[in-house]
Design a protein around this nucleic acid. Structure first.
Length: 586
RNA sequence: GCUGGUAUAGCUCAGUAGGUAGAGCGCUCCCUUGGUAAGGGAGAGGCUCCCGAGUUCGAAUCUCGGUACCAGCACCA
């Protein structure tokens, strides 16, 4: 090819291929109106508006037509259009863009390949010839609002996977297969962790093993926060609407709240967030500057009514718990407190082997509350902290903060390189004031505290969904719902197995002994299917020597090792949250 | 909420121009008493084929409405 395949070239080629797709679709179907066709990470898409509804059956024909166009060696040529409104008269979406471009004083440019002209700023590859070795496949079809606006028409979006050669496409498709196997909904069902019922959409039922996982994680979070000076509180599930009016939720968040209307015309709502009750709790007493930072940790159940199409396994639910806290601080404690919170976050994510990056969202241009000077000071403080911690490598989303204060979001990458937003740390200059909260400063004056809303795992449900996929349900020892399975070679060994089980349980481990009928091979199969970290196997040889043999989840076999050596290894993994299983030197 | 799709045994799925449903795995029982991911044989499971209404002599199969789920969009922890 002789072309330099760098990221820019790939973008250019994908975008060129989007034109090929558009041409193919225009040739195959009648009355096609064109929207946008940009390149994306795994290829490109193009939005169409047309009477024919594209179905999966159409994919092959589209691919064949695209291949034909590519084979034709069509040159991409810049095309001067003197009267774009006339030229694109039958393309309403393009006309909209043209008028906007003109209003912005920008040039109207178009590209042509093989007689097909599309409004486009370019650049493109020289000819479809360059796309000959590319691997591409129509991936899916979906509805997408014109310009992402739910009030505007919905177009048909065709997604195409496209890579510089067929091998890479294949590799990407295999990656998708792998991701599919790790889908937490699939694994959650296979591993008996959780399920959903039609009568409670978006509200998971936790099965015994899932509940074990959930509680292990929650208790870990509790211990970490307690050690860092957080105090756990538990507020009510249901509050009278007057509370939500004070906090502003009744006005701004009503659509997302499950409300309860009583016969006596009193109205309540299930809490969608913990903050208002934390405010009430702070206000219960006179507070001194000596009490700050005051950190209330809370993991209550939250309920949020979501658009039906938004629900997605554990990653988007309607009832969930957070490792939530509200930190009340003085103005001059912002830096130190944010630093402290980022410390905890890094520690927590490190335990799971998750890497992360930070995004700072700053003051919105409109609709923000408070003084600009206060915002600027806070943003400078946050930038300084992030600069220090991430060596300048963090993103800034200008104007994307909440109306009440700037925020830091942490995005986490899992082993497959996919990114999830879990953690959010939000400064709030407004809420304490709404509740009339004050503390007495060292100079005797009454001051309003700054509040930090922060959830580090985010929602426990979403976090569990992410780590199920991250670990492919092969959890580290400390987190495994069942840590050790025991298999007797035959019935005569059951008594010895029971002794081992008791010894392990006395040390606090979660153990399962299979005394059912059936071959040991089947029992081992069952435990392996459950992804248990260790399977202890004992028969005559082990009984004689008072030892055990272990089958480690990674396939390693350790024969005739002392029980106490195994126990201390397990204790070590539990205490230090080892990511890997110890498989030697017991 | 929007666009398109799916809804049949515990799981994965097949099926019939509309005439009271099948496979594999799992499960149960019997035989096998075993040394590390499926030993052999037999059998049970759906009788509302997601729910409701309609068409029809007859609907799980057709039509309409609803619900849930799936792929996206929008929204979001």
């Amino acid at each position: 090819m002789g072309k330099n395949i760098d990221a820019d070239y790939i973008q250019k080629a994908r975008h060129s291929m989007a034109h090929v797709l558009a041409k193919a679709v225009c040739q195959l179907f009648d009355n096609v109106k064109l929207g946008f066709g940009p390149p994306i990470d795994n290829g490109f898409y193009y939005d169409f508006d047309m009477p024919h509804t594209i179905k999966e059956e159409d994919f092959a024909a589209i691919e064949a037509k695209m291949a034909e166009i590519i084979k034709n060696d069509e040159e991409f040529m810049y095309k001067q259009i003197d009267n774009p409104e006339a030229f694109f008269a039958s393309e309403p979406y393009k006309l909209e863009l043209i008028s906007e471009l003109k209003a912005g004083g920008e040039e109207i440019s178009a590209y042509e390949n093989g007689g097909f002209v599309d409004l486009c700023a370019g650049p493109h590859v020289e000819s479809t010839k360059e796309l000959r070795n590319w691997g591409f496949a129509v991936a899916s079809i979906a509805g997408a609002y014109w310009r992402g606006d739910s009030n505007r028409p919905m177009l048909q979006r065709v997604y195409v996977h496209a890579f510089p050669d067929r091998k890479e496409l294949k590799k990407y498709q295999q990656f998708l297969e792998e991701a599919k196997k790790r889908d937490h909904r699939l694994l959650g069902n296979q591993q008996d962790l959780f399920f959903f019922d039609e009568t409670a959409p978006g509200m998971p039922y936790w099965l015994p093993k899932g509940a074990k996982l959930y509680n292990t994680l929650l208790n870990f979070s509790r211990r970490v926060h307690e050690a860092r000076g957080y105090q756990e509180i538990v507020g009510p599930q249901l509050n009278h609407r007057s509370l939500w009016e004070t906090s502003g939720h009744w006005e701004h968040y009503h659509e997302n709240m499950f409300t309860v209307d009583l016969d006596n015309d009193q109205h309540y709502a299930l809490k969608p967030m913990n903050c208002p009750n934390a405010m009430i709790t702070f206000g219960r007493k006179n507070r001194s500057y000596r009490d700050l930072p005051l950190r209330f940790y809370e993991t209550s159940y939250l309920h949020r009514k979501e658009a039906s199409g938004a629900l997605h396994g554990l990653l988007r639910v309607q009832t969930f718990r957070q490792d939530d806290a509200h930190n009340f601080i003085a103005q001059n404690q912002i830096s130190s407190e944010i630093n402290e919170i980022l410390d905890i976050t890094n520690y927590l994510y490190g335990v799971f082997g998750l890497t992360s990056r930070a995004v700072l969202s700053t003051r919105p241009l409109e609709g923000y509350l408070g003084e600009i000077a206060e915002w600027d000071a806070a943003e400078d403080a946050l930038k300084a902290v992030l600069n220090d911690r991430y060596e300048g490598k963090f993103e800034i989303n200008e104007g994307d903060g909440a109306f009440y204060g700037p925020k830091i979001d942490i995005l986490v990458q899992d082993v497959l390189g996919r990114e999830w937003q879990l953690c959010t740390i939000q400064l709030d200059f407004q809420l304490a004031g709404k509740f009339g909260l004050e503390y007495t400063d060292s100079d005797g004056k009454r001051k309003t505290p700054v509040v930090i809303h922060r959830a580090l795992f985010g929602s426990m449900e979403r976090f569990i969904g992410v780590i199920i996929e991250h670990f492919a349900a092969k959890f580290p020892f400390w987190l495994s719902p069942i840590q050790i399975g025991i298999v007797p070679v035959h019935d005569a060994h059951v008594g010895y197995c029971e002794k081992i089980k008791k010894a392990l349980e006395d040390e606090g481990f979660r153990v399962s002994l299979d005394t059912s009928e059936g071959t040991m091979g089947n029992k081992i199969k069952g435990f392996r299917h459950e992804m248990l970290p260790y399977i202890v196997i004992v028969g005559d040889a082990e009984m004689e020597q008072g030892n055990i043999s272990i089958r480690v989840r990674n396939g390693t076999q350790c024969n005739n090792i002392p029980l106490d050596g195994f126990v201390s290894a397990c204790k070590n993994m539990d205490k230090n949250h080892h990511l890997d299983l110890i498989d030697s030197d017991f």
